[in-house]
Amino acid sequence: MLKRRDFLKTTGMAALSGLAVSKAVASGSFWETMPPAGVQLYTFFNVIDADVPGTLQKIADIGYKNIESAFSKKGGYYGMTPKAFAALVKDKGLSWKSHHVLGAPFQLPPGRKMPNGPDGKPIVIPPMKNLRDNMQELVDEAAEGGIPYLVCASIPLNTTDEIKSAMNTLNKTDEACKKAGIQFAYHNHYTEFKPVDGVLPYDIILKETPVALELDLAWVTKAGVNPVTLFEQNPGRYKLWHVKDIDKDLKQPQPVGTGVVNFKNIFEHAKTSGMQYYFVEHDNPADPFASITTSMQNLKKIWGSIA
């Protein structure tokens, strides 16, 4: 017969053992509780068009599973139709989750020039469709590709009139996306957090549109805004993230874990945010494959530190 003292000793040890196992499982399984790691293909803007299949294969080989597409110097979907690109992505063992489009005709900011390509010459890109002028066509193409999300990458928000026009475009696109059976989201930079006539454009987007949000963790950090605060103020609305770091001077994007973004705290609040997919991104890296490899390695370390 098991004596009371032995029972307490045995069950106590079991409880402590169970607690230790639970903590280990929680810590070790955080990676598994997250959606599969994704990549924003803008990271490869200067190289992908030379070899689209090869670029996607290398991304898959590094361990990424999801992709978010963006602009291509070939036009369209890296020179393909949505269906053809979707088939290629699937063939490489990847899943196409989202696509970036412009909200209005492309214009460089005042004083800015097109960056140089690998040949040292300014990049030349074909005319790009935008939501203001080609909204239904872009929505239909996204639906044709079978992707869950269409994302407005940027839209002019520098004046009250531009903001008013932008809200009209975003709301119309959201309605069209719902009819097409896909979701629409808005991606931020840091300028949305600069006042226009005393009001933050980002606050207007939050209040005057129902769109989902794709939070760029580097740009919101540059703006001096805590992502977790946004999650808590707007729970469930941040369906997508751009997982990108930024240097201590808040000027240059960096691979994940090599800058100042507090990823550990942010990922601890993933459930509150409503995040469904996240995409590692690095704007104009010297070596995009090395960058996303570093990001993947550091993401695993960050998640491993979360109990």
Rank of each mutant, 00 (worst) to 15 (best):
M296L: 15
E208K: 04
S29H: 09
A14F: 11
A307D: 13
T33N: 14
C152P: 01
Q136K: 14
A84Y: 06
A104V: 05
W96L: 05
A212M: 09
N168K: 14
L240P: 01
P109G: 08
F85V: 02
D140M: 06
W31P: 04
A104Q: 02
G236P: 05
G111Q: 08
P235Q: 08
V280D: 06
T55M: 05
F193Q: 06
K90Q: 14
Q57K: 15
L200C: 10
G257Y: 03
K172I: 02
K90A: 15
F44V: 08
N188G: 07
K9N: 15
Y42H: 11
G76P: 07
D216P: 00
P195D: 04
V280G: 01
P253N: 04
Y78C: 09
K300E: 12
S69D: 03
D119C: 10
E137I: 11
D287R: 10
T173N: 04
P35C: 11
G146D: 03
S273F: 00
H100K: 04
D283H: 10
G120N: 07
A87W: 01
Y78R: 02
I163Q: 03
I125T: 12
G63R: 03
R112D: 15
Y42N: 08
L8D: 11
G257L: 02
I205V: 13
K301V: 14
E32R: 14
M34N: 11
L250N: 05
R132K: 15
K164I: 08
S95G: 08
P285V: 04
S22R: 13
Y202M: 10
K300L: 13
D249Y: 10
Q297D: 15
S273R: 01
P288L: 07
R4T: 12
T33G: 13
D174L: 00
G198K: 07
E137T: 14
P210G: 04
A50P: 08
M296T: 10
A15T: 13
I246D: 00
K194W: 13
S72D: 09
K74Q: 13
T258K: 10
M1C: 13
E268F: 12
V260R: 06
D161P: 06
V211M: 08
M1N: 13
L19Y: 12
Q233R: 09
N265F: 15
E68I: 01
V25S: 10
N158E: 15
K83F: 05
N265E: 15
L108W: 11
R4N: 11
Y42W: 10
L213G: 02
P82Y: 02
V220N: 01
H100Q: 08
P115T: 07
L19G: 14
Y77M: 03
T55H: 08
N171K: 03
A176W: 00
L41S: 00
H187K: 00
F193E: 01
Q233D: 11
T160M: 12
G38E: 00
P288H: 05
Q297E: 14
V139R: 01
